[in-house]
Design a protein around this nucleic acid. Structure first.
Lengths: 327, 327
DNA sequence: CAAAATTGCGTAAGCACTTACGTAATATGA
DNA sequence: TCATATTACGTAAGTGCTTACGCAATTTTG
């Protein structure tokens, strides 16, 4: 047999090794279930077991308890219901929910396969002991580590180290990032309006050519954030479409973008710098406030561009920022 | 958040946890690759790396080195070739083989993503250290344990313990096992002939109703082996279609079946007990020899039933088994 | 108290592998 | 030496999850 490169690659192929091990184990367990003749699949076990101790219970609840996604449970439940192992009925007090419980057949099947899962428990335990480590303990620790700090974030930080965030103005090559960053950011939170779509698709025409600017934040080669400064009327600039890619949140990139946008607007002779934002974007709201923006009543033209719930803000002029002496 | 039952189930859901961890890690790594902008997928890495150090090299060889199946490599190679990262040509000395190697673009891409896999190595290492165990060591030990003794076998043994092997005669309920056991056993080794198919499909008509017998080996509830005794002509029995399910090999079940078949034939007045077998089935051959069967020249009728390469054997009569005094 | 957001669930499609199977080229063996 | 294995490889389909998305029912909110 050849050298197993995966092994040699060590940490690099760690995920593959875990997957292989998992596949091997579940394959073998399935085989045993299969020739135990019970019309029961190994992967149903966690659901069955849960229903055995707590029922009736809804699909999403099961998913949470097991750490699966709800479609997984939905699929397993469908299969089990077809075999007559579980039964379901709608929750009277909440018609969306489907409450699952074991049927008599389900209970007896569960009892019938009890020896199998007893064997699985013992053999897995034996295997784990043979590893010579406290493997379950280690596994739990790793899961916890990842929960605290996901792999993506770790990798990101490490790849970023050495490269500083820099803010650069619009270029043709950067243009496409404006749309993708905004979609990534806004997509799941707010449905885009037609107006938004048009601007995102062609920011050059909608913003740059009308005397505005688009700034980008980059770390090394990757573009991680963007902000638009739109010239509404001479001397009046609106800061809009600010977005920072998910994995770089909380590193002050938003603040740096906002500051750069303000600076650019002032240098372009801004008498008024405005922002319109959704009340949902709490973090952004807090950021703007901390930078000196205050809520205001929009003029009708501006008001008309946005939905009812929008929050409108303007920036107080620079002289009163550090000093609170008023007129 | 609800109690994570998977955790609570401990060893029982061990495989699921491994899978989840693996999925999480590879998902995150893929994301990073994706926004590193290189047209490169994380899962190609092992193949690329291998080609980087050793090329050209065939698909199957790669699969063996990585511990994947060859279709996996075939698919990855197809994708990489489409992106122009690798190139392939047929092996002149063996036109079946396709030799793969990195293109210039492939090499430069590999160099370009070097920082990413360096980060992956470091972060994974960090994660593993955070587990507080020698996780890689434990993983290797577990892989080795499983290689020595696969999970299926462990489970089987444990489920069998307490139940003895018993040999039982044909019943209608057992009938279907005759076909499935023989298919499991013979399928991958010998292509079935029409003759075989007919007998397997309806053993009752082909064997029992013609004065033969079919015996089954059971352990507890499961049927793990079978053998047929066919009445060829009065006083002449052929032992055939002996099969033991894969995971119970090497436990003397074959021998017990063969012995039971011989006993049954003798009690039914056998003057001649015969076996026809393929030279491929070394283990069976050795078994028959050890039980006293010796090679013989078949009579024409018997000869005609089998392929050219078949080995024909008969059993010497019982009286000369333990004592070698000759007439 | 409506409009809007959220929630519970199902279906479809994707993912990264696997098994199953077929074909052509090479090796084997009476 | 020629039929019979075996091997290298590809394609198709399966597996057991996931993400993406959509529809109702319920809850929240201005």
């Amino acid at each position: 047999m050849k050298t197993d490169l995966i092994r040699e690659l060590g940490p690099l192929a760690f995920a593959s090794r875990l997957r292989r091990l998992s596949d091997q184990l579940s394959h073998d367990v399935s085989m045993i279930y299969r020739d135990f003749e019970a019309d029961f699949e190994a992967r149903w076990f966690p659901v069955a077991r849960l229903l055995g101790r707590q029922s009736p219970i809804g699909v999403t609840e099961i998913a949470e308890s097991l750490g699966y996604t709800h479609p997984a449970v939905s699929q397993i439940a469908a299969a089990m219901e077809k075999r007559g192992l579980i039964r379901s009925r709608r929750d009277r007090t909440d018609e969306r929910r489907r409450l699952l419980s074991l049927t008599a057949k389900g209970k007896s099947t569960l009892a019938q396969i009890a020896p199998v899962w007893e064997a699985v428990r013992e053999c897995t335990g034996e295997l784990i002991r043979e590893s010579g480590q406290d493997f379950l303990q280690g596994l739990a620790a790793m899961e916890e580590s990842l929960r605290r700090r996901p792999m993506a974030e770790r990798l990101q930080t490490r790849l970023d180290s050495g490269s500083e965030v820099e803010i650069v103005p619009f270029t043709r090559t950067l243009e496409r990032h404006f749309e993708s960053l905004n979609r990534e950011w806004l997509g799941p939170i707010l449905p885009l309006e037609d107006n938004d779509r048009r601007i995102l698709r062609n920011p050059s025409a909608g913003i740059i050519q009308r005397g505005g600017q688009i700034l980008f934040a980059r770390i090394g080669e990757s573009v991680v954030g963007t902000v638009a400064i739109i010239l509404q009327r001479p001397g009046i600039f609106e800061i809009a479409k600010m977005a920072v890619t998910t994995r770089r949140r909380g590193k002050g990139i938003g603040r740096r973008l906002a500051q750069a946008a303000i600076d650019w607007a002032r240098q372009s002779g801004a008498a008024d710098i405005r922002i319109a934002t959704s009340p949902k974007l709490k973090a952004a709201l807090a950021l703007y406030q901390s930078m000196g923006f205050t809520r205001t009543t929009p003029d009708p033209a501006w008001r008309a561009e946005y939905q009812r719930r929008t929050i409108f803000m303007t920036l107080a002029p620079p002289r009163i920022q550090s000093d609170s002496t008023e007129g």
